[in-house]
């Protein structure tokens, strides 16, 4: 179904992925990895070590809390739940548009997916991202208008055509949100 890998899952994203998977029900590291692998086969795989170290950092920062330990040793015995601060951190991240020029395409997709996965509406994020893209397009269009050379114009055009492609994806995804929601129901 999904044949390409989009982007790299960075440190920040790992935190938000785990928070969104924990949102609504407590879970173990092992189950979080399994759900991630099932939901996002096209993203870079998360290693167990990455998951456990992120969970322990989230615990230290008060964004998740340990709710139980089953018998035996090892990190996969610990069950975590999201805290109120964790939910608020997740919601802030989900609604914040990405910086336009640096936005890795995988992150646009990831934010939409995690919003839907956690039962939230992805539209506010898409609208905010659209507005940010459009603001950047206005800046570059104004630079283009004041350009001194044809070279400068085509350099601006390069940026404009790429931003326009992102915007087309944002609009297209907004149109498909209701169908996409069905796929992300847990």
């Amino acid at each position: 179904m999904l044949v390409y890998r989009c982007g790299i899952v960075g440190l920040m994203s790992t935190q938000q992925i785990l928070l969104s998977l924990l949102d609504g029900h407590p879970s173990y590291g092992y189950d979080l990895k399994r759900e991630y692998d099932e939901r996002f086969p096209n993203l870079k795989p998360l290693r167990f070590s990455q998951i456990y170290s992120t969970l322990s950092r989230l615990d230290r920062d008060g964004l998740v809390t340990l709710v139980g330990e089953s018998g035996g040793n090892g990190p996969d015995r610990k069950q975590y739940a999201i805290t109120e601060s964790g939910v608020s951190d997740l919601e802030t991240w989900l609604s914040a548009p990405l910086p336009v020029d640096e936005a890795p395409k995988g992150e646009l997709f990831l934010k939409v997916s995690l919003a839907l996965l956690s039962g939230r509406d992805a539209q506010p994020f898409l609208e905010a991202q659209r507005a940010r893209h459009m603001a950047r397009m206005r800046e570059v269009t104004s630079q283009k208008r004041n350009a001194d050379s044809e070279t400068e114009i085509v350099v601006c055009d390069f940026t404009l055509f790429h931003l326009e492609a992102d915007l087309s994806w944002i609009d297209h995804t907004t149109e498909r949100l209701s169908r996409l929601k069905v796929e992300f129901k847990r």
Binding site: M137, L160, L167
Partner: peptide
């Protein structure tokens, strides 16, 4: 067209 709208 977004590129046209960016002139506004």
């Amino acid at each position: 067209a977004a590129r046209a709208a960016a002139y506004a």
